[in-house]
Amino acid sequence: MATGATEAKAKVHERGGVAVIELHGEINRSAEAVIERGYEEAAALGPSSLLLDFGSVDYINSTGIALIVGVLARARADGRTVRACGLSDHYREIFEITRLADFMTIHADEASALAEASG
């Protein structure tokens, strides 16, 4: 995971029918609006699958995890599957503890996530 930037940002793009939400910075309480907008932008692309890319995230605290649960809940309610990629070993473990990993497939990187989504 990269370091340096702290303010959260979400960049959205579509690849192979998957809406990719590339997250940057710190995912904490101040990231709420950013994540909300990111999801809405991604949903507007009308994909059946979402990919959350954490490769450029510096830090996630427990409020950040709650925001991700919110995205997961909205995606499930909208009938979309959610995948995640770019998580460090540490955050993979956090996703295990919080049991987010039960509900989203975790991939090493965007390429492997997209390959599986299209396969």
């Binding site: 995971m1 370091t3 830090y59 540490h90 473990e93 503890i97």
Partner: peptide, 18 residues
């Protein structure tokens, strides 16, 4: 980098272990 080490330390002390 020192930044990564600092983030790692913050993580190690803030989150519960699995």
């Amino acid at each position: 980098s020192p930044g990564e080490a600092r983030e790692g330390a913050r993580d190690a002390t803030s989150w519960a272990k699995n």
